[in-house]
Design a protein around this nucleic acid. Structure first.
Lengths: 226, 226
DNA sequence: TGGTCACGGATTGTCAGACAATCGGACAAG
DNA sequence: CTTGTCCGATTGTCTGACAATCCGTGACCA
């Protein structure tokens, strides 16, 4: 029966639970900047607002907390996490380790993963050229960096990198009005990939190191945490 | 008012919630090998067994799932995760990146972190010499490896490493009767630290690479997953 | 024989409502 | 300025309920 597995490849069905959708809605609200950092997320209010029960809200809040987007204090509830300068620095240091490992492994990496890096870059630069919204630019930008980690071929490192990016998106959500020069960013990334294509792995690593240092400094500066 | 902050520094109070204790008990049961991998964790049965409500059990199960110790399939419930050969390999590859970063940073690391590595090693070797149980040996062994990651000074990388170790403990729980030669292991770790003390960072990195490859192969072999 | 269908028990996902424990603040008293 | 007490708000946990879903079993039919 050839073709059976590919026959209805375009069909979808939403298998998401109510908790998933609630968590996603909360994430969106956080990234969209609808709730400031530090805002307490009251269970009853959210339940009423989302039209679900308190149990469901509690579970969704647990997801947010596990992702690091919110913090829970016993008997005091969950509030949107407030990014500190130290955590931004730590995220970037950790990223350097993960992405650096990917960059160093460029030569031995799976060709498919290398192709994914190129594609992530073009998606990003295309979005910049198209003048897309700040949020989708961030999305493509961070996806590119994750694709570097994917060069290691390790799903767990990719998952760790995605967790870091989530935390970073939280910080970026607070500075979305402070538009950095995304065009420069895009060029910088193109240069990085060109170094990789030339197999100048060490140079690419050094480049990445500077890039992440810059990123940390910019975000911290924009947050006014100097 | 000098001394106020340090006055009652030794006092403690258990602030753990029922969910925390339930999750801890489940973890213990998993690591102790009381439940095999793949065993379904039924909510009502656990609630009755632990003497808590189903809501509490559900939340505790969510914690286990988030830690990777169990997997949840929609409408099919939570079961103890079954370690695959590929995941063991991936965990070790990821560990190599994290621990390798720590080892490479030995020279620039905080002296306190370096001391912590030495202390973790002696705790491990002491436990081996004292003929401690298999489980506490694993605990000390993995703690040593985490202390290597801590050389990076990044809490997030340490957290990621701890997540990996949790997954490994799950796999090790299944082979605890297959006693590996832990004495060799201890000597191997001592050799690693001696390389570090001599600031032979590259040699230490290569050593670590071999060590982790061995570890992966041993665990996979013991699991009979070839 | 082999495949489809319907049924019933078991389990999860979600809900509603309840109550004690805890927290934060206001306010009085020493 | 510290201590003690009260109160409203909120969380942590429990109980009970119900629809949706899954899985096995057996009937039914080509």
């Amino acid at each position: 029966m050839p073709g059976q597995t590919t026959a209805f490849a375009t069909l979808h069905l939403d298998h998401s639970s109510t908790v998933d959708r609630a968590a996603e809605e909360l994430r969106r609200a956080v990234f969209e900047g609808e709730v400031e950092s530090g805002t307490p997320l009251r269970e009853v209010a959210l339940a009423a607002s989302l039209g679900v029960s308190r149990s469901t809200v509690r579970e969704a809040l647990g997801v947010l907390v596990a992702e690091g987007l919110a913090t829970r204090e016993p008997h005091r509830g969950v509030s949107v996490a407030r990014p500190a300068a130290s955590s931004v620095r730590d995220v970037c240091r950790a990223r350097l380790v993960l992405e650096g490992a990917g960059v160093r492994g460029w030569r031995e990496a799976d060709p498919a993963d290398r192709r994914a890096v190129r594609e992530a870059l073009t998606r990003y630069t295309d979005a910049v050229a198209a003048g897309d919204s700040f949020r989708v630019l961030n999305e493509h930008h961070l996806a590119f960096h994750v694709s570097l980690v994917a060069l290691t071929g390790s799903p767990r490192l990719v998952a760790a990198a995605e967790a870091l990016m989530t935390e970073l998106k939280l910080a970026l959500a607070q500075v979305d009005r402070i538009r950095r020069n995304t065009h420069d960013q895009a060029e910088s990334h193109t240069a990085l990939v060109e170094l990789l294509e030339a197999e100048e792995v060490d140079a690419a690593g050094a480049f990445l190191c500077d890039h992440l240092d810059d990123a940390a400094a910019q975000v911290i500066g924009a947050l006014g945490l100097g």
